[in-house]
């Protein structure tokens, strides 16, 4: 194996292990995009977060191009972090295939869930997704007939079954017609959220009342040190 992908999470810049500051939460971003070279929005979104201290950015398609997921390593990464994020484009109302494979293999019974499976208990989980359609399309009367919250139910329930604390998702809607300045604004929002998650500056009460975390960010993120 010329490329030691198993030895460290990030040979190709896929993941940088956080400088652990015990007073901070550690964030694991599991990023899945099979065609990042064609991406407009996600490419910018991840720029702001992949180098953040205290954040492990794990580029799954870069680590496992052959879908040969290293389960013990992934479980180790989960154990090492307090906040788990699925970041991906919303493909067919779901995750890209590799992230689904990741769930199937890594979240084992007896480890992640079940009477013996308590490894993830108490961790915080959230999704960070981009959708081509605008927010109006994700309404009962809209094009997609279901809300994002409804469509994300399988992922939400997966996290709940693993006894994780689930936050509302970060959603960047309408990527198809998104202008560059909009993309930049989303990227700034996303960085701000990740930093706040790390620094425990998210107002959980306020957050739970939102359908998406970035709907009114100022009410959710407390500024200044904790």
């Amino acid at each position: 194996m010329p490329l030691p992908r198993r030895s460290a999470p990030c040979h190709f810049g896929a993941a940088t292990h956080p400088n652990r500051d015990p007073s901070l939460k550690s964030v694991l971003i599991l990023f899945a995009h099979p065609a990042l070279q064609k991406s407009r929005v996600n490419r910018v979104l991840i720029e702001g977060v992949r180098e953040l201290p205290g954040v492990t950015f794990h580029d799954l398609y870069e680590a496992y191009p052959d879908f040969d997921i290293d389960v013990p390593r992934e479980q180790g990464l989960l154990l090492d972090h307090d906040v788990i994020v699925f970041q991906h484009p919303f493909f067919w109302y779901s995750t890209p295939a590799l992230l689904k494979e990741w769930q199937d293999l890594v979240l084992q019974h007896g480890w992640a869930y079940g009477s013996e499976g308590k490894a993830l208990r108490g961790k915080t989980f959230l999704s960070a997704i981009t959708t081509g359609g605008r927010e109006v399309a994700y309404q009962r009367e809209g094009h997609n007939r279901f809300t994002i919250t409804e469509l994300l139910a399988p992922i939400e329930q997966t996290a709940r079954l693993c006894e994780m604390e689930v936050l509302p998702p970060f959603v960047a809607h309408g990527t198809l017609g998104m202008k560059d300045d909009e993309i930049a604004r989303h990227a700034a929002d996303w960085s701000r959220i990740v930093e706040a998650l790390r620094d425990e500056r998210i107002d959980l009460e306020a957050a739970r009342s939102q359908t998406r975390l970035n709907a009114s960010l100022d009410s959710v993120v407390r500024e200044g040190g904790r």
Binding site: P2, L3, F12, P34, A35, L36, Q37, Y61, E62, A63, P65, D66
Partner: peptide, 17 residues
Amino acid sequence: GVDVLRLLGRRAYPGHR
């Protein structure tokens, strides 16, 4: 060849495919 592409900085998954 795939590893050459990766070490040149290309994305792994497109190279694999």
